[in-house]
Amino acid sequence: MAAKRVLLIDDNEDNRTLVKFALEMNTDWEVLLASDGVKGVTKAELERPDVILLDVIMPYLNGLEVYEVLKNNLFTCAIPLIFITATTQTKVIAKLENTLATGVIIKPFDPLRLDTQIAKICNWNLESIGKTVV
């Protein structure tokens, strides 16, 4: 089975580095990165990843705006999307959960379990996609 391709759209360089390292250390997934919503939409159209991890609070286009663009785009509308957010506001979490997004991951997350969280949300079997099981 081909390795999964994950696109992370996040304006925070430290978050991008952490997620890329954590996922590539524990899986054979390819992690693609975009530093803002506009670049993320373009990369999603060109690369067609297996899942998109989308930060909510970003400049220019916030996560919900990027979500709307992706879900209304013929090339990206079927890609599963997982919001990643540091907000703990119940209203915001409810709004994210009421979208057609595949899931929501709350920061701070455990980088060593991030692959498991993503796989569970996407209904992927980690053993069949290259995770080292110990």
Rank of each mutant, 00 (worst) to 15 (best):
T85F: 00
D50E: 06
E47R: 09
L54A: 02
D11I: 09
L33Q: 13
D14R: 06
L53S: 03
I84E: 00
T87P: 02
S35M: 13
F75S: 13
N62G: 02
V51D: 00
T76W: 11
D11T: 13
L7I: 10
V69W: 13
D55N: 01
T88M: 11
D14G: 04
I79V: 13
R48F: 08
D11P: 02
T90H: 14
M25H: 11
V69Y: 10
A94H: 14
L53E: 00
R16G: 04
V38T: 14
F75N: 14
K71P: 05
L23R: 02
T42P: 04
L81N: 05
N73E: 07
W29N: 01
T76L: 06
T42K: 10
E45W: 06
Y60D: 13
V19S: 00
V56G: 00
N73C: 08
L64G: 03
V51P: 02
L18A: 03
V69K: 09
D10T: 06
E65P: 02
D11Q: 07
T88W: 04
E30H: 09
K20M: 05
T17M: 14
V19W: 00
G37A: 03
L32H: 07
K95Q: 15
L74Q: 14
T42Y: 06
E45S: 05
T17G: 09
V92P: 00
L81Y: 04
K43Q: 10
